[in-house]
Simulated scan of single mutants.
Amino acid sequence: MGMSTAAMRYLLAIYELSHEGGPVRSVDIARELGVSPASVVHMLGVLSGEGLVSKRHYGRVQLTDRGIWSANQLYTKCTLLETFLLEELCVEPETAQRDAVACLCALSEESVEQIVCRVLETPVILRASGE
Rank of each mutant, 00 (worst) to 15 (best):
R127C: 03
V101Y: 05
R66W: 08
C78G: 07
Y58M: 09
S111D: 13
W69Y: 13
L11F: 08
V101L: 04
Y58F: 05
V119M: 05
Q62K: 14
A7I: 02
V119Y: 02
R60H: 12
G130Y: 01
Q62L: 06
R60V: 14
M43Q: 15
E16I: 10
V24H: 01
E121A: 11
A71N: 04
G2Y: 00
L120C: 06
G130S: 05
E113T: 07
S129E: 14
G59Y: 03
V53N: 07
S108C: 05
V112T: 11
E113K: 05
Q97S: 12
E16C: 10
V41Y: 14
A7M: 02
S26K: 10
R60C: 13
S39N: 14
E16W: 02
V53R: 04
I14H: 09
S108H: 01
S48A: 14
C117L: 05
G59V: 00
E131Q: 12
V41S: 14
C105L: 06
A71E: 11
G51L: 01
L80A: 04
E82Q: 12
A128D: 09
S108D: 08
E82D: 05
C78D: 10
D28K: 06
V116Q: 02
A128C: 06
R25V: 08
E131Y: 09
H57T: 14
L33Q: 11
V41C: 05
C105Y: 03
A96Y: 03
L120D: 05
G21M: 04
Q73S: 11
C105H: 06
E16G: 13
L44Y: 01
V61R: 00
I68M: 13
S18Y: 00
R31K: 13
A30H: 01
T122K: 09
D28G: 06
R9S: 11
E113V: 00
S111N: 10
G22E: 14
R127N: 03
R56S: 15
R118E: 10
N72G: 15
L44P: 06
T79I: 05
R66A: 14
E87T: 04
G67P: 07
L126V: 10
V101A: 03
I68F: 09
H42N: 10
L17Q: 07
E131M: 11
Q114D: 11
E20G: 11
G34D: 11
V124R: 08
W69S: 15
V46D: 07
Y75M: 02
S26P: 07
E94Y: 08
E131W: 10
R60A: 15
Q73M: 12
C90G: 09
L89A: 08
S54Y: 06
G45W: 02
Q62V: 08
G49V: 01
G45V: 00
Y75D: 13
T79V: 13
I115L: 08
R56W: 08
I115Y: 01
T95D: 10
S18F: 02
S36F: 04
L85I: 01
V112Y: 03
G2W: 00
K77S: 15
S111R: 03
A128E: 14
